[in-house]
Design a binder for these strands. Structure first.
Ligand SMILES: [Mn+2]
Ligand SMILES: [Mn+2]
Ligand SMILES: [Mn+2]
Ligand SMILES: [Mn+2]
Lengths: 152, 152
DNA sequence: TCTGATAGTTAGCACTGTCTAACTTTATTC
DNA sequence: GAATAAAGTTAGACAGTGCTAACTATCAGA
């Protein structure tokens, strides 16, 4: 068997799935990862505005566990992407688009969280895991999670 | 209410949880994210070695859906971290540490995958979501997933 | 209204993870 | 065994995500 055979023998199969389907899955995960930050930021900003009337960088930093300049830079990106609006030395506002994304993220977060709790997980671990998992669940999975949680 | 009050009123509570617990969760997610790449690589390398006798960069690249130089650089990092060993222009081997990590990742991957399937998710979406979720499930959650899948 | 404390920004560093273009090495095939 | 194809590396670009140190702006209280 030549190397080329090894690499591309008719449909390339490793674990029973063609290589490009796997590649697609990995691509999807990379995409999700690139959106994670923005999602956590807008979700948190919406929450701060709701609970305290405004979202200040210092509060964002404290809750995310990062330093102030990290937040400044991230907010610049979010502004560039049209998710927030801001003026120098002032607190942050969500654009319509940002608000929509925040709502969507909050929904995902809560479905995942309720699901984990309904499985019997303790509250702290559930919050922990939900914070990561929320960015990697498809709409289909989410539907199953929601159904399970309301049945349980 | 002054700004300082807003930020640190006795225990800072937003949604019922103190800010540092949340920060810890986000820190955990950032840590997980920084391990994701290494995990996917060693898992895939182990699989290629098992199925084809060797793990060649070109095959890794095809399955991950990235270009060859991306793989070269990633493999350099993995070697630096002691997870793989390699010689220039040759295929890749796992160190003992790499093999151990690969086993652990494969286990997590399979538990998450089986769980999603047992919830009723279709195979392709399950693979997709598992590829992302696997890096963000705690051992506790994993135990609940495994129990649910074997009961179902 | 000063003034000191708090908040925010800027500059600059480090590392990750992706790419393309160009080159080198290895493998296949005639 | 020489020519060609395939695989792999190197160099260099660029964006993201984090940090510290140093500066600037705003706010709160005397
Ligand atoms: Mn999150
Ligand atoms: Mn969240
Ligand atoms: Mn994965
Ligand atoms: Mn995996």
């Amino acid at each position: 068997m030549t190397q080329r055979d090894l690499a591309t023998a008719t449909p390339v199969v490793t674990d029973g799935r063609p290589a490009d389907l796997r590649a697609e899955a990995f691509q999807g995960v990379r995409d999700a990862r690139s959106r994670e930050l923005a999602e956590d930021y807008v979700e948190l900003i919406a929450e701060l505005i709701h609970d305290h009337g405004e979202a200040r960088p210092v509060d964002i930093a404290a809750r995310l566990g990062v330093r102030a300049p990290t937040v400044t830079k991230a907010l610049d990106r979010l502004a560039r992407e049209g998710l927030i609006s801001r003026a120098k030395y002032r607190s942050v506002f969500l654009t319509d688009e940002g608000r929509a994304l925040a709502r969507e993220c909050r929904r995902r977060h809560e479905i995942v969280l309720r699901f984990l709790l309904s499985l019997g997980l303790d509250a702290e671990t559930a919050e922990h895991d939900a914070e990561g998992i929320e960015h990697h669940v498809s709409e289909r999975t989410l539907a199953l999670f929601a159904a399970f949680a309301s049945k349980a």
